[in-house]
């Protein structure tokens, strides 16, 4: 394959190819720079007190020791009291659990739609509706995904007959 333009039917400015690489590299450098710097400041202006990090480990150690000394040892009679209370609590919990176990196991289907809707409303997904709309392909959606009510053909024809004066105004295109 010929790499040169031997027939000379087009011309380029003199010295064009000599300076091409430099020009291109300069442009790449500039556009990279633009992208990196954006228009946001690179530092955020936060400072820490001098020597803050030097003393941190000992501060954490003394806090840990403080936590350890706060633990109050249980007296033997107190322990027995706790065991007795725990046994009663276990019996009560087991009774309740046995009763509750008789109800059918929860599945995704048993969740009410309102619960699912509530979850999406209450949980911050980190995206706005418009942002979600940007990533959901419209082609995969059917009208039935959005509308609960299914229109029958005769309803649509009745509506057009009764309410539309001039059907030409709808400017319908036959796409089929």
């Amino acid at each position: 394959m010929k790499k040169t333009n031997n027939k000379k039917d087009f011309k380029v400015p003199e010295g064009y190819f000599e300076g091409f690489t430099d020009k291109l590299m300069e442009r790449i450098k500039t556009s990279n720079g633009d992208q990196k710097n954006l228009m946001l400041p690179k530092s955020d202006g936060f400072k820490v007190p001098d020597t803050y990090f030097e003393g941190l480990h000992s501060k954490i150690q003394s806090k840990l020791k403080e936590d350890e000394t706060k633990v109050i040892p249980l007296n033997p009679w107190r322990k027995q009291l706790y065991y007795a209370a725990a046994s009663v609590a276990i019996v009560v919990l087991l009774t309740i659990a046995v009763q509750f176990n008789q109800s059918p196991e929860l599945t995704f289907e048993s969740l009410a739609n309102s619960d699912i809707e509530d979850y999406f409303e209450q949980t911050d997904l980190g995206f706005s509706t418009y942002e979600i709309a940007e990533v959901i392909p419209v082609d995969d959606l059917e009208v039935s995904d959005i509308l609960e009510y299914q229109f029958k053909d005769e309803n649509i024809i009745d509506y057009l007959d009764d309410d539309i004066d001039n059907i030409e105004e709808l400017n319908l295109l036959d796409n089929d």
């Binding site: 946001l40 400041p41 530092s43 955020d44 202006g45 936060f46 400072k47 820490v48 007190p49």
Partner: peptide, 12 residues
């Protein structure tokens, strides 16, 4: 412990 300028405050 913050010495940011106007633009850094606006960024925050």
């Amino acid at each position: 412990y913050f010495d940011g300028d106007e633009i850094q405050i606006k960024l925050q």
